[in-house]
Design a binder for these strands. Structure first.
Lengths: 327, 327
DNA sequence: TTCATGAATGAGCATTTGTTCAACCCTGAA
DNA sequence: TTCAGGGTTGAACAAATGCTCATTCATGAA
């Protein structure tokens, strides 16, 4: 304090503009005086100090820089956020592009951290299924939020013995968070419209569907119908169906709801037989967190973004670049 | 295996913290959101945003520097320009001679402003590496020049995990400018001539080298082989090598190409193992912007000027004086 | 398991900062 | 001289920020 006063009196008299800006900048940003203190010292009004500081920043006399350490892609994230109106984008640095598995794991970890960071008690959380979501649940470090509520948003998949997948995911997640749980005890896809009606009349199924309008957050995987995806492997979607969907323009799905390159729902017979949240309903959810990455996902991710299907994207560096570059 | 996975997880965990700090820093200081807005977007409390911002400043992820604007030392700049036949000299006012860091940052900021001022679309820009260049990239305010092209002019440095440095710099720069990018996917220095030949036959490496004759501008750091330089710290150059080079008269390097007090290239076994642009090639580039400053750089800056290795110099006041005074 | 300890969290409050607005000052023209 | 117009000024208010403190949470020892 005394030091500054001395400094100031030593060159009292007139400080030309730049000198004054520099001085104020240093006092404020380096010596951490308040604007009031500076004003008193220099005998000017506090409002003026505020204005001069603003000027100093404008004139680049005060420079503020934010560094992106290696592996952090804040600017890419920002691009994604503004370009697609996302609430948040998370871009992870994949270890080895070659391994889809590594990418999936990295995204899962990032998603788990995202969940941990954003989880609020009394959230109603929806969860679909897939390898990436499974990675996320694996990476979850327990955190209590007993008033939260996990809802399974699509029925089980494939033959009954594989059905654990969707259900198990929701269960493991609920147990990690220590919260309430509503399962959707039904197959994700049924054989006919009639079968769907019957399923829907089940009281437990009804309850799950009734939760959907109350959702706060949904965690969904963004899938591409490649031959080795879980959907295809489990025979949930047959080869023929896949081709039929492709013919209709489908580039991928969220919770078995297929959409085209513009992110618009595909209307099809298949769609009618799915037991789960619809894309229109999903869009109404406040926060939809989409997880996806790896070489095969570029186009789907882009489509989902275009269609505004998700509000938070967690993906890898290469996919992020590719999505931004392709027009 | 387990250890490895854990490593990745914990590494990622730390990264996420840094990621958050960076993100919040950018949102607050570059995009001027309020803490409340940031808190809402990221689903965390405002108090936490405030604390994280404080942390980001402490951790130097957010840097605030106060400097006099350029043009203050116009006379010095003119002297340098005429005496050494420079196209332009930029002299910045450093705050405290004692802190190499502050000097480096100030030069980085000036360089970023220079880049912004001179950048033309369709430029082919080359970039080496080092702390000063890193500061420059940090200070770059995004500006679109989509037809420009960044080329990495020397391979990655040090052990693979540190290799990000050179590559990351080029990447960040390209992303700030929003332009094309050619990386040089190889180590900056290899063990033997034979290894170099092998590397050179790689198609990506070839492509990077083929860009070099087309360069419009090169941004290079001018390095001094002091024990605490990045080169030495990363073990790129061993202690013995350094002494051997010194014995041959080396006073410093540009992109690992060492030269003597007269700015003449040092012929050595070391030189043969470097994967990057040669000094002779560099001289043919229309505009070579050299960044360097701080007490240890005086002699090397002078040498580079004498040898006509650079056509634009960005440095600090003290170094500029010292270079002009010593005959 | 249970408990203790120290760190992390967010609500609420006090301080600090940005901005508005009416008054004032300068400058040049009539 | 007056007057008009733009630009500055600081008082007062509104907004944003930092900080305190009670509470919760995680971690490690018993």
């Amino acid at each position: 304090m005394l030091i500054h006063e001395q400094m100031i009196t030593s060159n009292n008299g007139r400080l030309d503009g730049i000198r004054l800006l520099t001085k104020i900048g240093k006092l404020y940003y380096e010596h951490h005086l308040t604007q009031q203190e500076i004003a008193d010292d220099l005998c000017i009004s506090r409002a003026k100090v505020s204005r001069l500081l603003h000027e100093a920043r404008d004139e680049n006399i005060v420079n503020i820089t934010v560094t992106s350490p290696p592996g952090v892609h804040a600017d890419l994230e920002r691009h994604l956020e503004t370009r697609f109106g996302l609430r948040e984008a998370v871009v992870v640095e994949e270890d080895h592009w070659s391994s889809q598995d590594a990418v999936t794991r990295a995204i899962g970890i990032a998603a788990a951290q995202y969940l941990r960071r954003t989880l609020q008690d009394e959230d109603v959380i929806d969860i679909s299924w897939g390898r990436t979501l499974s990675s996320m649940v694996d990476a979850l470090t327990p955190r209590a939020a007993p008033e939260s509520h996990i809802v399974q948003l699509i029925g089980g998949l494939g033959p009954p013995e594989a059905e654990v997948h969707a259900t198990d995911l929701a269960r493991r997640m609920a147990s990690a968070i220590g919260c309430k749980l509503t399962l959707l005890p039904a197959p994700g896809i049924v054989d006919s419209q009639k079968a769907k009606q019957i399923m829907l009349s089940d009281q437990h199924v009804k309850r799950a569907f009734e939760m959907m309008p109350q959702l706060d957050v949904a965690y969904v995987g963004i899938g591409a119908p490649t031959p080795d995806s879980v959907v295809m492997q489990n025979g949930v979607v047959s080869c023929g169906q896949r081709e039929a969907l492709a013919a209709l323009g489908a580039v991928g799905d969220i919770a078995l709801r297929f959409f085209d390159a513009g992110g618009q729902p595909i209307v099809s017979e298949f769609n009618e037989r799915v037991l789960g949240i619809a894309l229109e309903q999903l869009k109404r959810v406040k926060r939809v967190v989409g997880l996806s990455g790896g070489p095969e996902k570029r186009h789907v991710v882009r489509a989902a973004l275009k269609g505004g299907l998700i509000s938070v994207l967690i993906t890898d560096y290469r996919t992020a670049c590719s999505v931004l570059n392709s027009n």
